[in-house]
């Protein structure tokens, strides 16, 4: 798989480390009443879709940036790659 890095251009997926579902950007509020169950869901539960999936990739052997990659899990086609920083600052709910 080739990941179209928004700054560096096309890079081999081997340079990246995979973390998983981009919803991990949305860390629950640790002071909330239901923090315990919210963190359980955050930590362990996954949507695991067959189809379009937004996921976190870390460019470990590159510029060490975190990306949000939109990829089809049934074909491995990569539809989009954004800096995770931009996604987080835009306050998008990563689903």
């Amino acid at each position: 798989m080739i990941i179209p890095h928004p700054i560096l251009g096309p890079r081999d997926a081997q340079e990246f480390v995979y973390l998983g579902d981009a919803s991990l950007l949305n860390r629950p509020d640790w002071q909330a009443e239901d923090a315990s169950s919210a963190f359980h869901d955050y930590q362990y539960q996954r949507n695991n879709p067959a189809g379009v999936h937004r996921e976190l990739w870390f460019h470990e052997q590159g510029d060490r940036s975190w990306l949000v990659v939109t990829r089809d899990t049934t074909t491995h086609e990569i539809l989009k790659a954004e800096l995770a920083r931009d996604v987080a600052l835009a306050g998008e709910t990563a689903k």
Partner: peptide, 18 residues
């Protein structure tokens, strides 16, 4: 491998990635 797909039809999320 289809656990996530099938169980989502029952409205469930699982501690599983495929």
């Amino acid at each position: 491998g289809s656990s996530g797909r099938v169980m989502s039809q029952a409205g469930m999320r699982l501690p599983i990635e495929s």
